[in-house]
Design a protein around this nucleic acid. Structure first.
Lengths: 145, 145
DNA sequence: TTATTTCTCTATTAAGTCTATCAACATTGT
DNA sequence: ACAATGTTGATAGACTTAATAGAGAAATAA
């Protein structure tokens, strides 16, 4: 799995909408808060709309809002939709039928495991969870990488 | 983490050398067995040499062999060396100091978790393990993706 | 020595992806 | 009508990836 800027921006945008649930937020606001090039964000938001994650209102008091409650939008859904499959290599993706030789298969089991553990993480976090973390100022983490 | 062809080829090559430990294998052999463009494999093998994973012998009875016992070459090492950091996004990699805003940080914890679980998988598998799997014909897996 | 086989190195091409920007258009509320 | 907002398609520039080409250097065998 690799998160591109596009994906990163999309996640930020959805999180911001989650933090403003019930309200309509303009592209301009979103772009400013998250420091995203506005023209790029336009594309991303349209994508998110096509993906059924957000809705839009045109006109003077227009803007974007979540299409579903934040609790029902999982991190993994958005990532997959914007940045594609999370599998680390094509041969592990759905509907792949190549992979006939013995060597690939030994690695395949590994890639499948990686994909499953990754999925286990990102498909169990909703944007409500994330928004709550932001709200409750629960952001002092210890990282050890 | 995204495995490129380059990375895939590198892994295959190292595995093949692990299966032939003690013997010298030519690029030509490796390329043929793993169905890799020979000129591309040349580059990959040189990379692997620079990374200290393999050694080479020139001349008539030349070829490649592992620089260390297969038991001491971990899958993760090779992947990182050939395809770069396994972290899904730059802000989680070592020495990154940007990441000042609140939104990124909420996601950051997730990416760190993904990186850690991935690392936990690929850094605990050696090429000896993989070679043994191949040898013992232990290749009938059940996949559920 | 000479020929052969092998690895070594540098350059280049072709295609694709990613980020970003532009300009024109459509809709809505006042 | 007007102004603010989203919509759409096109495109450019930088970068990455995969693959190919060709000349060179070292080791070996005859």
């Amino acid at each position: 799995m690799r998160i591109t800027y596009r994906g990163d921006y999309a996640l930020k945008a959805v999180l911001d909408l989650a933090l403003n649930e019930g309200r309509v937020v303009t592209i301009h606001e979103l772009a400013k808060k998250a420091d995203i090039p506005i023209k790029f964000l336009e594309q991303v938001l349209l994508d998110l709309k096509r993906g059924g994650f957000v809705e839009s209102r045109r006109g003077k008091i227009g803007g974007y809002l979540l299409a579903r409650p934040a609790s029902r939008i999982k991190l993994g859904e958005v990532i997959r939709f914007i940045d594609g499959p999370i599998e680390p290599i094509t041969c592990v993706e759905k509907n792949y039928s190549g992979c006939t030789d013995i060597y690939k298969c030994v690695f395949r089991a590994i890639w499948v495991e990686v994909a499953l553990t990754t999925s286990n993480i990102i498909d169990n976090v909703s944007f409500e969870d994330l928004a709550n973390q932001v709200k409750s100022h629960k952001r002092e983490f210890e990282y050890s990488i």
